[in-house]
Amino acid sequence: MLPMTGLRLQSPLRTISVLLVHFLLAHFCRGQSQLIGSPQPIVATIGDDIILPCHLEPAVDITAKTLEWTRPDLDPRFVYLWRAGQDHVKAKNPAYKGRTLFAGELKHGNISLKLSKVKPSDEGRYRCYIPDLTIDSFIVLVVGE
């Protein structure tokens, strides 16, 4: 009798497992990319050149998309703005002009931002955002001496 009981329990568990796997595959395979940044703060020393990581998974060519790097506590808030295939320098906060560029490859979904000559005032929370896809990621920069 014991082997039969074991088989009866195994069958519902197997059914639940199959349904769970099916649900997870359906949920995660919808083609929706996610922006991945750094879960840990990026630590920089004054004067460093650093990379603020941000990329799409799965990778998608985003050359033709609008891409924004912002700091909500600034006015204007734009650290970097890419629209219609070009850098919109006039929209940038003056503190970042000439100090930012894409370090990644847009064709491969990499929109990491290189920030040169880090200053104490660069410390803060940055937002990597693709408005067309309504997805974003936040990265914290900590600046030490």
Rank of each mutant, 00 (worst) to 15 (best):
G31Y: 08
R71A: 11
I62Q: 11
V60Y: 00
G104L: 12
G85P: 12
R77I: 05
D61S: 01
R71W: 00
A84F: 09
V60M: 11
K90Q: 14
A59T: 04
Q86A: 12
D136K: 09
K90N: 14
V79A: 09
R83E: 15
A91W: 09
P58A: 08
D49K: 06
D75T: 12
V43Q: 12
V118I: 14
K119V: 03
L56E: 08
Y126D: 03
D75S: 14
L74I: 05
V89N: 02
K92F: 07
L35V: 13
I50S: 10
D136E: 14
C29M: 15
T66F: 01
G104H: 09
F78C: 02
A64V: 05
K119I: 02
C29V: 09
K97V: 15
E68A: 06
I62C: 03
Q86P: 01
A64N: 14
L106Y: 06
W69V: 07
D49M: 05
K97G: 01
G98E: 06
P72S: 14
H88E: 14
I135A: 03
S112W: 10
T100R: 05
C54S: 13
D132L: 05
K117C: 04
L74G: 09
A59M: 08
V89D: 02
C54H: 01
S137K: 00
G47M: 10
S33M: 06
L74T: 08
Y80I: 00
I42V: 15
Q34D: 08
L81E: 08
G124L: 04
R83D: 08
R30T: 15
A59S: 15
L133D: 13
K92W: 03
D75G: 00
P53Q: 05
A84T: 04
I130Q: 11
K65V: 07
K92C: 01
Y80G: 04
L133Q: 10
T70G: 03
K97A: 09
K119Y: 04
T100L: 10
P39C: 08
I42C: 01
D75V: 03
T66S: 08
I62K: 02
D136I: 01
S137V: 03
P120A: 07
K97S: 03
H108W: 04
C29D: 13
P41H: 10
P120V: 08
R127I: 15
R125D: 12
R99M: 07
V43T: 14
A95S: 14
R125H: 09
V43K: 11
V118L: 02
V79T: 12
F28E: 13
I46H: 10
K92Y: 07
G104M: 10
L115S: 05
L52S: 10
K92M: 12
P131I: 13
G124H: 06
S121F: 02
K97I: 13
K90S: 12
P53C: 07
R83F: 10
H88V: 12
F28I: 12
